[in-house]
Design a protein around this nucleic acid. Sequence first.
DNA 1: ACAACCATGTAAGTAGTTACATGATTTA
DNA 2: TAAATCATGTAACTACTTACATGGTTGT
Lengths: 194, 194
Amino acid sequence: MPAMSLPHALLTALVERSSSGLELSARFDKSIGLFWHATHQQIYRELAYLEQQGWVESVAAPAARGRKRVYRVLPAGRRELRRWAGEAEDPKPSRNDLMLRMRAEAAVGKTGVGGDIERRLKIHHERLAQYREIERRDFSGPGRTRENRIQHLILLAGIMTQQMWIDWSEIALQQLREADGEDSRDSGNGVDRP
Amino acid sequence: MPAMSLPHALLTALVERSSSGLELSARFDKSIGLFWHATHQQIYRELAYLEQQGWVESVAAPAARGRKRVYRVLPAGRRELRRWAGEAEDPKPSRNDLMLRMRAEAAVGKTGVGGDIERRLKIHHERLAQYREIERRDFSGPGRTRENRIQHLILLAGIMTQQMWIDWSEIALQQLREADGEDSRDSGNGVDRP
DNA sequence: ACAACCATGTAAGTAGTTACATGATTTA
DNA sequence: TAAATCATGTAACTACTTACATGGTTGT
């Protein structure tokens, strides 16, 4: 059986709250968006699939505008979600194009990849600040329910990921500066590996 | 213009050493494999594309078996690789299905996701040990060339990633055990956030 | 001559992205 | 009544995966 992550991610979001496609699309980026992304086109396609499987039902939104439809999870959908969540799967090597560019730089010489690392460093700092703010807002009191703890753990994974790339970027920039410096003069600075 | 990461990853691997498709496929997993994966089917397809672009040329392997062809990067390929490596691109939120399953567990109750975290913890430990071994073998002397430093940085990113998931997994398992414990009795253990 | 393996591929399907189309409601 | 924006979709494409096919070489 294939992985089918996206349909189950949507099922989860709909268990948390029944929504229309566009509402889902907006909520998706803010919550699950830390570790998965989907465009609205994909979401509409998958919603049709969920309904065809009998996992959700949809009704035209009452007293609402246009063609809006609200999707609601059915018991069969909850069962399916529980089944899927218990499945085991190996962690996939995450694709990272920066690492490919690094390797290309190693192979063919200076290409300016350092500039991109600086750009990304800023982005990771911004995201970290955002996540810390969410943590302060939603997970600082003694909320202690199982659900609350798990959601905090997911956010924590996001925080740790951003922090890791910040640490790595700073080491990388320092190493690249040093390598460039040694080309001209001044070799022998104290450099320690992390 | 699309990202086109895979063709450029292959170009990089071929700059490092001219190879046949199957050799590439094997080398790929060991080096670039930390941050990208590709099946041999994909690789053959992309090799045909690289040749069609005039970035590589291939010759029937001399004194070799069967239909084996060896691919070699042309000057235009090097130029293209340098151009691509200097491009800027935002870090993509890495897709992580475990985080989806966590969120599903938060939404519909206990599903046994903890068992999978334990399984993954072992896998991350194994990978970390492997990477540390590579580090010891290939990057422990004072190799100090720019190329050597960059390749070490890529490996370092792999090491830091594994370490991060080990740290996270241990926190997560502890939190899940606590949440389960508090359901029955014994609430109030000293728990600190990292 | 047969098994094991080296080497390259085709076909079909799943997943994700980009560009564009369409109509309905609200706001200026 | 025009612009903005809400809401849902289609079409075409790129990227990746899984299953299978085919022929050549080496070892027994």
